[in-house]
Simulated scan of single mutants.
Amino acid sequence: MRLSDFAGTWRLTKRLHDRRAGVEGHFEGKARFTPAATGLAYEETGLLSLAGQRPLAAERRYLWREEAGRIAVDYADGRPFHEFDADDPAPLAEHLCAPDHYAVRYDFAGWPEWEAEWTVTGPRKDYLLRCRYSPSAS
């Protein structure tokens, strides 16, 4: 898998299970990978619906780049977030945001549809987030 394979617009759905708060949530939106100076700028926008609350506009931004056969994902301000082996069909990546621990397993086996499953644990957070990406025409 190459970084350029991600370029374009993706339909994005997320399912959230916050074990600590006992809250379920759902996100519907788009993720766009557009050319940037060092790789691809990632921008996701959509609506986050949490049980019993009004939907909220939500967005995230990252920078994706290739580095020594791996894909590195940085925060929008350039700080490192995580990286994964671009040739592994189900790579695992981790990030320590002390005192919490983030682990993500990507699944590219059904490409061009793909998934990212985040498990976040620690004294402040305890949730599972399943993200599904599928090609979008716009």
Rank of each mutant, 00 (worst) to 15 (best):
L3E: 08
S4T: 06
D5M: 05
D5K: 02
G8E: 02
T9A: 15
T9D: 09
K14I: 11
R15H: 14
D18Q: 11
D18M: 15
R20Y: 05
G25L: 02
F27H: 00
G29Y: 00
A36S: 15
A37G: 12
A37D: 13
A37N: 05
T38E: 14
T38A: 15
G39F: 03
G46R: 01
G46D: 01
L47P: 01
L47T: 02
L48G: 06
L48P: 09
L50S: 03
L50Q: 06
Q53C: 04
Q53R: 07
L56Y: 01
A57Q: 03
Y62G: 03
E67M: 05
A68H: 00
R70P: 00
A72S: 07
A76I: 06
A76Q: 08
D77E: 15
P80W: 13
F81Y: 14
H82F: 15
H82P: 11
E83D: 14
F84V: 04
D85G: 03
D87P: 03
A90K: 09
L92P: 07
A93L: 09
E94Y: 11
E94L: 13
D100C: 13
D100T: 09
R105L: 10
F108E: 00
G110H: 14
P112W: 13
P112Y: 13
E113G: 12
W114T: 01
W114F: 09
W114G: 00
W114R: 03
E115P: 11
E115V: 11
A116T: 09
A116E: 12
W118E: 10
W118H: 15
V120D: 04
T121Y: 11
G122L: 12
G122N: 14
P123I: 00
R124M: 05
K125W: 07
D126Q: 14
L128V: 14
L128G: 08
R132G: 04
S134L: 10
S136Q: 08
A137P: 02
A137H: 07
